[in-house]
């Protein structure tokens, strides 16, 4: 039996190491970079939601500025909420976001809550929703004055009613 031994030269060894590092770096970046920054914002926003709220779900939003027609872009998410349950919805702007996120909660057609009151200009970072009707609800996120922005919304469980 003949044993074949490959002895890489010094240059080849260096090349292997460099390429190995490039591949490892690329693979790691590709899989985790985007997720990690989002995860940090989610973690931060979850702490803003408060100790009395249990994290359920997060929704990441990234929107462009309003076009020439002036309508602010918005992103919609659907969430199933259960009767006799109090939920908390918290919105946090990403670092460097130009716009301030507005979160609204609808069922099929009715607006239940908004973090922004256009009459008074008052804004809230969170609101609680005491659900009495099990079903699908819509979370709509847009940015004040149609600015470009990114934010995360945290849906949390507060208590059983």
């Amino acid at each position: 039996m003949t044993n074949i031994v490959i002895k890489p030269t010094g240059q080849i060894s260096k090349l292997l190491i460099v390429l190995g590092l490039i591949i490892a770096g690329w693979v790691g970046f590709d899989q985790d970079a985007a997720g990690q920054s989002g995860s940090k914002l989610v973690e931060l926003c979850n702490s803003v939601a408060g100790d009395d709220a249990t994290y359920l779900k997060d929704f990441y939003v990234e929107l462009d500025a309003a076009g020439p027609e002036g309508k602010a872009p918005e992103q919609r998410f659907t969430i199933v909420l259960s009767k006799n349950t109090e939920y908390r919805f918290t919105v946090c702007n990403a670092e460097g976001s130009q716009g301030k996120a507005i979160l609204q909660l609808y069922d099929v057609s009715k607006l239940y809550a908004s973090t922004y009151n256009p009459q008074t200009g008052q804004t809230f970072q969170s609101f609680n929703f005491q659900c009495q009707k099990t079903g699908a609800y819509h979370l709509i996120v847009s940015f004040l004055d149609g600015k470009k922005g990114s934010a995360v919304v945290i849906a949390s469980f507060v208590r059983t009613l």
């Binding site: 009767k83 109090e86 909660l105 069922d107 009715k110 239940y112 809550a113 809230f124 969170s126 609101f127 609680n128 929703f129 005491q130 659900c131 009495q132 009707k133 099990t134 079903g135």
Partner: peptide, 24 residues
């Protein structure tokens, strides 16, 4: 079945709470 109702909004200690009056 479903019952209709208008939601009630309460703001207490800076926290807004919306109480749904629709019921399943």
């Amino acid at each position: 079945t479903y019952e209709q109702g208008e939601p009630v909004t309460v703001v207490e200690n800076g926290m807004m709470t919306v109480v749904q009056k629709d019921r399943s």
